[in-house]
């Protein structure tokens, strides 16, 4: 149980974490208002207040929500697919050395190909659309999730398996009673990293073949000569990436309280 005083302290600590961000934004605003007189500079390097106004306008006409929904949906579906494929595949590679050895060479060759290099082919195969976007994010996240899962399962201490067998767990019971819980912290970390990678790759994928999304919003700033839009898109990405990571971190801490 956390005492009420502790909750308040925790909230304060949470708030103080963002103090420097707020101070820097304030300095940017004040510095811009006092030192910059050329309106062209303010166009290309807009002040926080201008960006906030642009964000408000985009929020009111609903387009920011559409972009957020598109991008968030792509990351969500791509990451989910990556977890569904990457975790079992990583576990199989770690548990069956012969499968691992057979897959080693192909994975070594495919893995260095940047996910974005798949864009032309995926457009030819799936056409321009959500599926193609999701496939790119899936590629990006699946390798990360799979590699992390392989490491986690390989890292299960052999003495824990021996101890469990010694205490009466039959061979077929070891997976659920020992391997899964022992590998869980590593797998959770790999999933978190995979989702982070999906957010990272998202913008490039959207630059190349999307009509809506935060990547598109970022490009519009250039096309419409409204750099504030670009800043809004970048800020939204930062917020989404940080929020997803914080949420997954909290979930991870809950699932692996013992670590």
């Amino acid at each position: 149980m956390v005492a009420p005083g502790g909750a308040v302290r925790g909230a304060l600590r949470g708030a103080s974490r963002w103090t420097l961000v707020l101070v820097l934004l304030a300095l940017w605003e004040l510095g811009g208002r006092t030192l910059v007189t050329d309106p062209r500079t303010l166009l290309f390097l807009p002040l926080p207040s201008t960006i906030a106004a642009a964000a408000w306008a985009l929020a009111r006409d609903g387009s920011l929500l559409v972009d957020l929904g598109r991008s968030g949906g792509r990351v969500l579906v791509g990451s989910l697919a990556a977890v569904l494929v990457g975790v079992p595949l990583g576990a199989v590679v770690a548990s069956w050395p012969r499968v691992g050895a057979a897959l080693d060479a192909p994975l070594r060759l495919v893995r260095p190909i940047p996910p974005i290099a798949w864009v032309p082919l995926t457009i030819l195969w799936f056409g321009v659309g959500e599926l193609q976007q999701v496939v790119i994010l899936f590629f990006a996240a699946a390798f990360v999730v799979m590699a992390g899962t392989t490491d986690a399962v390989r890292g299960v201490p052999p003495t824990l398996l021996a101890a469990a067998r010694n205490l009466g767990v039959p061979e077929r019971g070891l997976l659920l009673r020992v391997s899964v819980p022992a590998a869980l912290p590593g797998v959770a970390a790999a999933v978190r990293e995979g989702v982070g990678t999906a957010w990272f790759v998202l913008v490039a994928a959207e630059f190349l073949s999307a009509s809506e999304g935060l990547g598109v919003l970022i490009l519009e700033g250039r096309d419409l000569l409204e750099p504030a839009r670009t800043f809004v898109g970048m800020g939204a990405l930062a917020a989404c990436g940080a929020a997803t990571d914080l949420a997954l971190g909290a979930l991870q801490a809950r699932l692996t309280r013992w670590t």
Binding site: P157, T159, L160, A162, A163, A164, R165, N166, L167, G168, V178, P181, A182, L184, T256, W258, T259
Partner: peptide, 19 residues
């Protein structure tokens, strides 16, 4: 093979950290 009639206590305990 291994059996519950002979139980080994490991030097580091080999406790299950999640339990």
């Amino acid at each position: 093979g291994i059996g519950t009639d002979r139980v080994l206590v490991f030097q580091d305990g080999a406790l299950f950290p999640w339990l």
